[in-house]
């Protein structure tokens, strides 16, 4: 059973629907025991980081102690980082990277919205995915690039940032695999195959 963590931060319907399309067995839950015993845990989220962090606070110790594969999506990934400029707020500190705001630059409209390419893929998440594949993004803040934890990168508004991160059993994507067509579906499928 996969646990989608419900912490009242935005719309999780699209993640549910993506798992349904993969015919995966899941539940939406905020129950610590259900999260602890799940085969895989997904931390979705849209919205504002400091508010989301406040909602997530009661579950932080549980989430940090997990040993099964955990996938943070968008704000979910950002909350797994050290801190965020949005708020600002301290985050869960699973990844060392900080979350920073895009600065306006020539020709780049913020939020970073739409399809962009992922490069330097090095994770089982990207098995069968080609360098330069397009994924869907909607965000104004980004996780810094890290030599040790970045497993895919994207360039936008003058910065190369972490498109995906991994440390031990913890994974995260700044893009939305649930909205990234067949490429995203494959990435989710790959995550569910990690054990």
């Amino acid at each position: 059973m996969i646990a989608i963590v419900d912490y009242k931060a935005g719309n999780i319907r699209s993640v549910e629907n993506a798992l349904k399309r993969l015919e995966a067995d899941y539940q939406v839950t905020s129950d610590p025991d259900a999260i602890r015993t799940a085969s895989h845990v997904i931390l979705p989220g849209v919205g504002e980081a400091s508010n989301a962090m406040r909602f997530l606070l009661p579950l932080v110790d549980v989430l940090k102690s997990l040993t099964q594969p955990v996938l943070g999506i968008c704000i979910g990934l950002q909350l797994m980082c050290a801190s965020s400029e949005e708020g600002p707020t301290e985050c869960m500190n699973i990844f060392d990277s900080k979350v920073l705001r895009f600065r306006p630059s020539e020709g780049a409209k913020i939020p970073h919205m739409g399809w962009n390419t992922i490069e330097n893929l090095r994770s089982p998440l990207f098995r069968g995915i080609q360098e330069g594949a397009f994924v869907y993004y909607v965000h104004s803040y980004y996780p810094e690039y890290s030599d040790s934890e970045t497993v895919a990168s994207t360039y936008f508004a003058g910065v190369t940032f972490s498109a995906a991160m991994n440390r031990g059993n913890f994974y995260g994507t700044q893009f939305h695999p649930e909205k990234s067509g067949p490429v995203g579906e494959k990435i989710l499928e790959n995550f569910l195959r990690i054990c």
């Binding site: 319907r13 699209s14 629907n17 993506a18 349904k20 399309r21 869907y136 909607v138 649930e178 909205k179 990234s180 067509g181 067949p182 995203g184 579906e185």
Partner: peptide
């Protein structure tokens, strides 16, 4: 639509 479509 949301159940079927995997793009925004």
């Amino acid at each position: 639509i949301s159940e079927r479509i995997n793009i925004p």
